[in-house]
Amino acid sequence: MKICTLFSGGKDSTYSLHWAMFKGFEILCLITLLPKKEYSWMFQVPNVELTKYQAEVLGIPLLQIPTSGEKDKELEDLKIAFKKAKELGARGIVTGALLSDYQRLNINIIAEEVGLKTYSPLWRKKQDEYLRELIEEGFKFIITSATAYGFPFELLGKIITEKDVEIIIERARKFGFNPAFEGGEAETFVVYAPLFKRELKIEGYKKKISEYEWRFIITHIH
């Protein structure tokens, strides 16, 4: 089946893309929505404009579509994206939805309206096991933003290791945030995955926004 995949450049959408590839789907394109606002109800905001570098090392065409970032209007933008996917010949959409009912339901409703099937391979996946599985399967990613009390902010900007995953899981249990960040606790950027032709090298710096909010600003990609 020919599909397109919603792609933010983070761990969840990248994992779902690889799932689709190994399941035998024909990937026509990646779809990245580019919110104009700092926060979005539906889409990842930090570093989504950088998905062009990931698309290049994946060798997959990329559609980058601007969106208002406003709660209802961005759903109209999502429909535009799905219509473009269908025009390319796609019959389905793959998503990285993990726990958000709001995101998954809206994606499913809009896809059905356009005439596309949806696939969400990570839906309700056990969080701890998923994080460990990412590392075991060779995914390399950095944390680019974090907003949660008790979060190990020192991990921002570094490639996450098995040891780091255990630190995140331990902190999540202690302080009550989601270990896979589905509650918006953190955002990630994948620098290498099994289907990447080469690894992306990242340069940047940490920026403190508030006591419980930090960001890693990417300044250059090799």
Rank of each mutant, 00 (worst) to 15 (best):
E112Y: 02
T144D: 14
R104I: 05
K73H: 15
G92L: 05
R132L: 03
I107K: 06
Y130K: 02
F82Q: 12
G138A: 11
A85Q: 02
T144P: 13
E70G: 02
R104D: 03
L98F: 06
Y130C: 07
Y130W: 07
E129C: 00
L131C: 10
L105D: 13
G92A: 09
F139Q: 07
I109Q: 07
E87V: 02
K126F: 00
K71Q: 08
L99T: 07
G69Y: 07
I143R: 14
I110Y: 04
P61M: 04
G69F: 08
A81N: 09
Q127V: 00
K79P: 05
L75D: 10
T118Q: 10
E133V: 01
L98W: 03
R132V: 02
Q103T: 09
E74C: 13
K73Q: 15
F139N: 12
I135L: 01
G150F: 00
N108T: 10
K117S: 13
K86N: 06
S120T: 07
P66D: 03
T118G: 10
I142K: 11
R104Q: 09
R124N: 06
R104A: 05
Y149C: 10
L75W: 14
L63F: 10
R124F: 00
A111S: 14
R124L: 05
A148E: 06
Y149E: 15
D101T: 01
E87D: 12
I109E: 12
K140P: 03
L78R: 15
W123Q: 11
V94C: 14
Q103P: 13
S68Y: 07
Y102K: 07
K86M: 05
I107G: 13
A85Y: 01
K125P: 00
D128N: 14
K125I: 04
I109S: 08
E113R: 15
K73N: 12
A85F: 05
K140F: 01
E87F: 00
I107F: 12
Y149T: 15
S100W: 05
D77I: 02
I110R: 13
F141L: 15
I107E: 15
T67C: 15
E113T: 05
I107D: 10
K86I: 01
L62M: 04
F139A: 10
V94G: 14
N106G: 14
E137V: 01
A148D: 08
K71I: 13
I93A: 08
L134S: 10
K86T: 04
K140S: 11
I143P: 14
S68L: 03
T118W: 05
I93V: 14
I80R: 13
I107A: 11
E136K: 14
I110M: 02
L105C: 04
Q64G: 07
I135N: 05
L122H: 03
A146F: 00
T118D: 06
K125V: 05
D72W: 09
K126A: 01
Y119P: 06
L122M: 03
P66M: 06
T118Y: 04
L134W: 03
E74H: 12
D101R: 09
K79S: 06
K140V: 00
Y149V: 15
L122V: 02
K117M: 04
K125Q: 02
G69R: 08
A148S: 14
A148K: 09
F82A: 11
R132T: 02
D77N: 14
W123T: 07
K84F: 05
Q103G: 12
V114Q: 13
I65V: 12
D72I: 06
R91D: 10
N106W: 10
F141W: 15
P66G: 08
S145M: 09
Y149F: 15
